[in-house]
Structures are given as C-alpha cells and as structure tokens.
C-alpha cells in the first residue's frame, strides 16, 4: 500500500514538473550527441584503433593501453608531479582569489578598488608564450632583473627556470599571478548577492570588520566556494598543460613532466590515440572518486553539495 502511494507520488511529481522536462529537452539532446557519443567513441581506449576500420571495426585489446601507461617508466613521477601542481594551485591560487574578491568587496577606497578590479583579470589574456618572455626577462640567470638585483647585492645568480627546486614554485606562483584576478570574478559575482541588511544588523550588534567577514561574508559565498573546489577536484589530474609545456625544459623534466605533457609526447605525436583516450579515462576515474568522496563529506557537514 505504502509503495503504491510512493509510486503515485512520484508520478504526480513528474507530472507536476512536466514543463520542467520540456525545458530540459534541448540541452539533453545536446548532451547525448556532443558529450555521450564521444564517450561511446572512447571505447578506442580498449582497442587497437585503425582509422580505416573505424571505432566499431577496430580490434579489442582489453586493458593494454592502461597497462602501457601504468607500467611506463615515469608513471609514479608523472602522477606525483601532476598532483603536486594541481593541489598546489588549488591550495595557493584559490584562497588568493577568494581573498582578492573579498578585499575588492570590502575596500573603502573606491579608486583603488575599481583599478584593481579592472586590471586584476587582464593577465589572464596574456598567453603562456608571452608570459614565458616576461619570466625570462625577470628570472634569466644571465641578465634577468631578479638575478641582476641578486648580483648587485653580492649574491650568486639562481637559475630559477632550470632548477628543480625553484621550478615548481615558478609554476605555481606564475599561475597565481596570471589567473588570480580571473578566478576572483566568480566570487565577486557571488559577493554581490549578499543582503546588505545583514551587515547593518552585524554593526548594530557591535561586530568588527574581521567578524563581519568571518560570520557573514564568507558563509554567504560558501556554496560557490564549495562548488568550485568540488569541480576542481573532479579534474584534479589536469595540472595545466599549456603552462607546463611552455615553461619546462630538459633539466627540470623530473619535476615538470605531468600526465598531459607525457600523453602529448607519447600519444598524440605518435598516433597512439587509444593510449591518449585510456589516460583520459584513467584521469576520469580518479577525478570521479575524489568528486564523489568530497561530495559526501560536504553533505555530511550540511553544505551545498554537488548532487
């Protein structure tokens, strides 16, 4: 009896949301064609792909490509570097972006605020080719501005760009430098939704600025922060191909080579598309675990979860 009513309830719910499903129709068809057909084609991860035989006609080879990747000489190092960069960027750049957004929101100097808000996102448009030129001008061991200063102070020049100790910091800091303002935009948008009367109430209760940020501002944008973090975790094994590819060189391979640069050299340049796809799926499995796990955590603590 109870089951029947549950079913009826469901049917009633579905009926009630008829127009919602109608709204969904076009995006859904889009998803099937443009997101799920490629996933179907992704079966070449398990096949020896021959162009003339097509996706369906190619021969199954099981987990061969996955084994190639996992057994490859540098696998552990690739994984370590990839995680180092993506977590590094997550724990370094993201808080900076949030702080920047809040600082812009809280600043009492309209000119400073507006200038920063207008300029901060501009470096996003400088491609890594240009950024490399700037980094070279700053950091080159021979005539970089930083090393010239070091020499002036009597120090020994440092080969920042080709030194395995310095390189990871260069990657993470230059990423923050270039992308911080851009990442802050979404948090600024979120801050705009805060109800100002909350602040007035806080003032009446005698809260100071720190407390205001702690108890009103941050909690108000928490849902967005959570979503951004969760989504970033889902693609944790994407550590920024374009940046690394432009910045790295042979002496720093041991700390610079990431999964994507490996795939690029091994897979795409050598017609091993099955392998490239297999690595994509591998990254997806890890991402899925992280996203599901952290989503669960978020739910347990009563946050706004992803699903």
């Amino acid at each position: 009896m109870a089951e029947r009513t549950a079913k009826q309830q469901l049917l009633r719910d579905i009926k009630r949301h008829k127009s919602v499903y109608a709204l969904l129709a076009i995006p859904l068809i889009y998803y099937i064609i443009f997101k799920y057909v490629p996933i179907f084609n992704g079966q070449i991860a398990f096949k020896k792909y021959m162009a003339l035989d097509g996706v369906l006609g190619s021969q199954w080879i099981g987990f061969e490509h996955f084994k190639t990747f996992i057994n490859s000489y540098y696998f552990v190092e690739l994984l370590r570097n990839t995680l180092m960069y993506s977590f590094g960027k997550l724990v370094f750049s993201l808080p900076l972006a949030i702080i920047l957004a809040i600082a812009i929101y809280e600043s009492n100097r309209p000119i400073l605020r507006k200038t920063v808000q207008t300029l901060a996102y501009l470096p996003h448009f400088l491609s890594w080719v240009i950024m490399y030129g700037i980094l070279l001008a700053l950091l080159a061991p021979g005539d970089g501005i930083v090393n010239d200063t070091i020499k002036l102070l009597g120090g020994k020049p440092i080969d920042f760009l080709t030194n395995t100790d310095a390189f990871p910091w260069i990657v993470i800091l230059s990423d923050a430098w270039k992308e911080m303002g851009w990442s802050a935009i979404i948090f600024i948008a979120a801050l705009m939704g805060i109800d100002p009367s909350l602040f007035e109430a806080a003032l009446v209760e005698g809260a100071n600025s720190w407390q205001r940020v702690r108890y009103i501002t941050l909690p108000s944008i928490r849902p967005v922060i959570v979503i951004v973090v969760l989504l970033r975790l889902g693609t944790i094994l994407d550590a920024g191909f374009n940046q690394i590819f432009m910045l790295y060189s042979t002496p720093v391979y041991s700390v610079a080579d990431i999964i994507d640069t490996w795939v690029y050299r091994q897979g795409l340049l050598e017609f091993q598309f099955g392998l490239a796809t297999a690595v994509g799926l591998f990254k997806g499995v890890i991402g899925m675990f992280l996203i599901l796990g952290s989503n669960r955590l978020v739910k347990r603590f009563g946050g706004n979860s992803l699903f």
Binding site: T250, P251, Q266
Partner: peptide, 13 residues
C-alpha cells in the same frame, strides 16, 4: 619512444 627520449635528454642535462 617518449620515455627513452626523455631519459636521454634529462640525464645529459
């Protein structure tokens, strides 16, 4: 292959 090439270049440098 890419791994051997990397080993070669990285080692020398």
């Amino acid at each position: 292959n890419a791994d051997l090439k990397r080993f070669y270049e990285q080692g020398l440098s």
